[in-house]
């Protein structure tokens, strides 16, 4: 093998021209934490969890191209601390009551929190009041759990070709909008098979049936970390 390489935490990683740091890392089996990145979709860059150090700066691994010979740092104490704080901020700004959430055990936000050993946060919780949308027969939109990763937006646009979602608002007043005449899920044409539904990393977009069917212990992240079951 004599293509270009760079290093992550000292380990040599091959890549092809145009690949991002996270793409090359995945192929080499190196986990870089992320929430809004998904290999099927164009990088988004909003969660900032994939922050790595490259060229003396902190950059997002999802949207930074790999450069031959570059030394990238991924698992430093500083980076993991910053990532943990980012996850704390996501918990603090929403309403995440995992014990009552059907996504629990299969949730990426939760799983990345575990992986980063997030136990609590020094910040006050914001307890926002966000609108719940239960108008759809099969799917619940619980905005309390939305982290604005736009995976549903991208999947609905690019895979489902329905373009059903968008983020509206600004700052902490951001909210997920449904692209339907009355702005509600029920009239949107979303169906259970939609990719948009499957890629939601949290319990924001959830099928209504089948909640809590998989017993504790056999859920996606029971007994294995997100780094091991990363898609």
């Amino acid at each position: 093998m004599n293509g270009p390489t760079f290093t992550i935490d000292g380990r040599s990683v091959p890549f092809t021209e145009g690949q991002s740091i996270i793409q090359a890392a995945r192929e080499a089996g190196i986990y870089i934490p992320h929430l809004c990145y998904h290999p099927e979709f164009r990088p988004h860059g909003s969660c900032r969890l994939c922050v790595v150090e490259a060229g003396g700066r902190s950059v997002p691994a999802c949207s930074t191209p790999a450069v031959a010979g570059q030394q990238v740092r991924n698992r430093t104490e500083r980076l993991d601390r910053m990532r943990r704080t980012l996850v704390e901020l996501l918990f603090v700004e929403g309403n995440h009551f995992c014990p009552a959430c059907p996504k629990s055990g299969n949730c990426k936000l939760q799983a990345v929190g575990y992986w980063l050993r997030m136990l609590d946060t020094p910040f006050p919780y914001l307890f926002p009041r966000r609108e719940l949308d239960a108008s759809h027969h099969d799917v619940l939109l619980d905005r309390d759990r939305c982290i604005f990763c736009e995976l549903c937006v991208r999947a609905s646009r690019e895979v489902d070709r329905k373009n059903l979602f968008a983020i509206g608002g600004k700052g902490t007043r951001c909210r997920l909008l449904v692209n339907s005449p009355d702005g509600r899920l029920g009239s949107s044409g979303l169906s259970l098979g939609d990719r948009a539904l499957q890629v939601c990393p949290t319990g924001a977009l959830l099928p209504r049936k089948g909640a809590f069917h998989v017993p504790v212990g056999r859920r996606l992240y029971d007994g294995r970390s997100i780094a091991e079951s990363d898609e």
Binding site: D120, Y125, R129
Partner: peptide, 17 residues
């Protein structure tokens, strides 16, 4: 802080909405 409620309000905090 032992448990979800002490840590982040937990189920009782559902009433904050």
């Amino acid at each position: 802080a032992l448990g979800a409620c002490a840590v982040n309000g937990g189920i009782p905090a559902l009433r904050n909405r």
